[in-house]
Amino acid sequence: MSEAIEARPGPASASLEFDELTAPPEWRRIEFLSDLHLSPQTPATLAALTRHLQETSADAVMLLGDVFEVWVGDDGRFDAFEADCLKVLRAAGARLKLYFMAGNRDFLLGAEMLADCGAQGLSDPTVLCAFGQRWLLTHGDALCLADKAYQSFRAQVRNPAWQAQFLNQPLEVRRALAQQMRNGSKAQQAMQEHWEDLDQAACIAWLKASNCVGMIHGHTHRPAEHQLSPGLHRHVLSDWDFEAEQARGDVLRLRQSGLRRIALA
């Protein structure tokens, strides 16, 4: 694993650290997107990402997790589908600043893939200092505290010993294991009456501890803007699905004038 995307202490930990990234003064536009869940079954979504990365006027694009439906190790990046994605991201990384933060599906994406894409890893969470304000970036899953089963699973798979053991297995074995875990996750989700959202008190605590005005995250697939308390806001990214009958996919664009949601579908 790259040090830039290693697991951080839990959200209730007093030792939680906030890495900082300062935008260069020449940047005029920064874009955020997440939850594309790219797979061989989503060619239209990959095509939409390709078009956007080719056409965007952003100085930097920050991918905040779950870019891929599953990622079982960087040694699989030359397989047919992964190689197509690598080509798209490499082209983007050659013409703008590209950043990647691990999600709950692609937390095993590491230093080799980042280097091949020309991308920089972001810790979760990271404070972005841009246009005179501080923004807290996170994928979001670490703050879904009410989902105890998921938090237990997250702690297991983010453990370096578990990851080393998993990555030591043959690629095809890893793919099969990942599919088994995914099937189990889908079965569990089907039995749930509702999806857990981010814990509001934890979000406020993170924002205050990091001295940020707003949080930008994905994971929940519930694009919205929430006022958490006076002066503190939470901005939720859209998931992407251009295979759907009603295609969807948004980006959040940050400029000196503020944050704006851009619908691409």
Rank of each mutant, 00 (worst) to 15 (best):
K148W: 12
S257Q: 11
N183I: 14
P160G: 12
Q192S: 13
D19N: 09
D84H: 04
L137D: 08
I216R: 04
L36M: 10
A201H: 09
G118F: 11
L96V: 01
Q188Y: 14
L108P: 00
R51I: 14
I204D: 13
L108A: 08
V72R: 05
M191P: 00
S152D: 14
H37R: 02
F242Y: 11
A7N: 06
A209M: 07
L254T: 02
S185G: 12
T45N: 01
G231H: 10
A265W: 09
M101S: 06
A111L: 07
R8S: 14
A161V: 15
F107K: 00
Q192P: 01
L64M: 13
W162H: 08
S185D: 11
F100V: 07
S123C: 11
W71D: 03
V70N: 13
A91L: 13
D199E: 08
Q246R: 10
A94G: 12
P40L: 06
G73V: 01
D74L: 06
L53R: 01
H217T: 10
L228Y: 06
T42W: 03
T56S: 15
A44E: 13
E243D: 10
T138D: 15
A12Q: 10
D106R: 00
G73R: 01
Q256C: 11
L167K: 05
S123E: 11
L207S: 12
L63K: 02
W162I: 03
M191L: 14
R29F: 06
G184A: 09
M1Q: 05
A201Q: 13
V88E: 02
K208A: 11
M1N: 06
A94E: 14
P170V: 01
W195K: 08
W206G: 07
A48H: 04
R28W: 09
W162F: 12
C144L: 07
D106A: 06
S34W: 01
R260P: 00
P160V: 14
A115G: 13
R95A: 13
P125L: 08
L122D: 05
G121K: 02
A176M: 05
L53N: 04
P24C: 10
D84A: 15
L128C: 05
K186R: 11
T45A: 06
A12N: 09
M113S: 15
Q256Y: 00
P9A: 14
R175N: 08
S229A: 15
T50P: 00
H226E: 14
D250L: 07
S39I: 09
C212M: 07
A7S: 13
Y99G: 03
S57D: 15
A244G: 06
G65Q: 03
F153T: 09
Q41I: 00
P9F: 11
L16V: 09
A178C: 05
Q54K: 04
C144P: 03
E26R: 02
M113R: 07
E196F: 13
S229F: 08
E17H: 11
D197E: 13
L237Q: 03
A187M: 07
R234F: 08
